[in-house]
Design a protein around this nucleic acid. Structure first.
Lengths: 231, 231
DNA sequence: TTTTACTTGTGAAATATTGAACAAATTTAT
DNA sequence: ATAAATTTGTTCAATATTTCACAAGTAAAA
């Protein structure tokens, strides 16, 4: 019933509001959040509406209870656990950023097929053998699996995760994995993203040069028009 | 005129087609690509239509010229350069995966404020001081900047990148940066993504349990209905 | 107290994206 | 050569998402 985009934005609102509260701010208006995120105020209001929280006309939203509403909506009563598969460069970066720091989704275990890594601890997270996957997922009650491996093995690892009871997968591999209907997958495809940015960067450059050209010639056209139609 | 989503998918088609060509496949049909990506065949055809390339009814698309059309559409005549700002864990992971390997968008230089990193080479990419940013961007003719730094400095670094002539930014920082209209920004917000996956994972679990409950009771309801309405 | 100015909540319009469906085209089989 | 089967290109419908616009409400000012 609630869209993915709304959930993403609620997460952004929370992060901003937490910061603002630290700075001593007590209320916020939809257009302030909108300006920070470069979206429209109506979007902010509509998202917040879905929380069931009401603001005060002419004053905005009180930050404290709004944060509570967001937490109530987004967060599980109990903190949730995740496991990471693939302790390569990307996996390590994820552990460095999210191993302990994140209250809501803590990465509790890592897995790799490289025997040299098994048994080691990376950024406070222990690395296990792939054969321990099911057992550890059950022990940690993990609901999310993070795939940070090259495409080849992704589908079989994914199947293993699903069999072990995971209901969400964050897939950094370039492969589009197949999962049952009752499992959520988010693809983060860095090389596709790179290509996209590269494409639009070039396009923006071309576009702005074309605009520049237009503006240069518009003056002439404008003069011509005022001379002839003189409206 | 072409949407971001279409560009992303074209990039995915290319990667798949390149693999299939290596495996000796010469033609492909829209429903094959669609099955691999879990989308509808009409979507594939529509995307390919935008390239101006035509398939053959009852045979599908010839892979070789289709790949050429995609390259023609997505790629710049000259390979494009990018610079990376922030050689932390994430920056290193990006360098490891994309420093040399990527024909289309090569990361040509890295920057960091940590003096210990300046002058070093990471995965074949040299790290410079922030003060060299403009100079190096000009020298390498970079069109894309990659921000892999914490939120605090993101806006000022972004402004620097834009001033230096970059027209695309790939932002891994949690800050929503502000850029002129003629600069393209893609946000990859890992913590928001984590929260999203966590949210929907929980929701999927709840939903599938509810479904299970329904199915268990449906039998009874079904029997009841056949007994009463007997349609 | 009354007025003014401003903000929320939300229906309705606008826009963007996807999906269904079918004519036209082409290959294969008869 | 003809018919049957299948796939493309594309239009139109369906769905999803965003934006507009305004009534209703509230605080501050007069």
């Amino acid at each position: 019933m609630v869209s993915e985009k709304t959930v993403e934005r609620l997460s952004l609102y929370r992060r901003i509001l937490q910061q603002l509260r630290v700075e001593g701010k007590e209320t916020i208006m939809s257009h302030e959040l909108a300006n920070i995120l470069h979206i429209k105020p109506a979007q902010v209001r509509r998202d917040i509406m879905q929380l069931g929280y009401s603001g005060i006309p002419n004053s905005g939203y009180r930050i404290r209870p709004l944060l509570e509403s967001i937490a109530n909506f987004l967060d599980s009563p109990l903190p949730q656990s995740a496991v990471l598969v693939g302790v390569g460069h990307l996996g390590l970066a994820l552990l460095a950023n999210f191993a302990g720091r994140w209250r809501q989704l803590a990465i509790r275990a890592a897995f790799d097929k490289d025997p040299a890594k098994i048994g080691q601890t990376f950024h406070g997270c222990r690395c296990y053998a792939m054969s321990d996957l099911s057992k550890i997922i059950a022990e940690t009650k993990s609901v999310v699996g993070i795939l940070a491996i090259p495409g080849e093995g992704a589908q079989s690892v994914c199947d293993l995760l699903v069999q072990s009871g995971v209901s969400g997968i964050l897939n950094f591999s370039p492969l589009r994995i197949k999962v049952p209907d009752n499992v959520f997958v988010e693809h983060v495809d860095l090389s596709a993203t790179f290509e996209k940015v590269s494409f639009f960067a070039r396009r923006m450059k071309l576009y702005s040069e074309e605009e520049k050209w237009k503006v240069e010639n518009e003056t002439t056209e404008g003069e011509y028009e005022t001379l002839t139609t003189n409206q």
